Computed example of a mutant assay.
Amino acid sequence: MNIGNKIKTVRLENGLTQSKLANELPVTQGYLSQIENGIRTPSIQTLDAIAKRLNVKVADLMKEA
């Protein structure tokens, strides 16, 4: 499972849509979609913001499943 898949899984577990999550972050819904689909790799700053919002550690999003 890659970072994007983990973000999507945790986002859905938190009951958030891509749009809702993106509105709470410094990214667009389109960019978040690209991250979740493995098209783009988030910067460390973006990954940190996503992890904080989803109440997980960056390391949890980065480790292999």
Rank of each mutant, 00 (worst) to 15 (best):
N5A: 15
N2H: 05
K8W: 01
I50P: 03
M62F: 15
N37H: 10
L12K: 09
M1G: 05
M62P: 07
I7R: 03
E24G: 05
T46F: 05
I39P: 00
N23V: 00
R53A: 05
V10Q: 02
R53M: 14
Q45I: 14
L12F: 14
G38Q: 03
G30V: 10
G15N: 15
V58K: 04
A59Q: 08
Y31H: 14
I7F: 09
A22R: 12
L61I: 10
S19I: 13
Q45C: 03
R53W: 03
I39R: 08
R40W: 02
I35S: 05
T9L: 11
Q18K: 15
K52N: 14
P26S: 06
E24M: 12
L16T: 03
P42V: 02
Q34E: 12
E13Q: 12
G15M: 13
P42S: 10
G4E: 01
G4R: 03
I35R: 02
T46L: 07
G30N: 02
K57Y: 10
L16C: 01
L21C: 04
T41F: 12
N14Y: 03
K63T: 14
N5S: 14
E64N: 09
K63Y: 10
N37Q: 14
L54Y: 02
L21E: 00
L32A: 01
Q18N: 14
L54I: 03
T17P: 03
S19G: 00
M1K: 01
Q29R: 11
Y31A: 13
R11C: 08
E36A: 10
N37F: 02
V10H: 00
I7E: 01
K52P: 07
T46P: 02
K8E: 04
K20M: 11
A51G: 00
V58A: 12
I39F: 00
G30Q: 13
K57G: 05
S43Q: 13
Q45H: 13
K57N: 10
T9A: 13
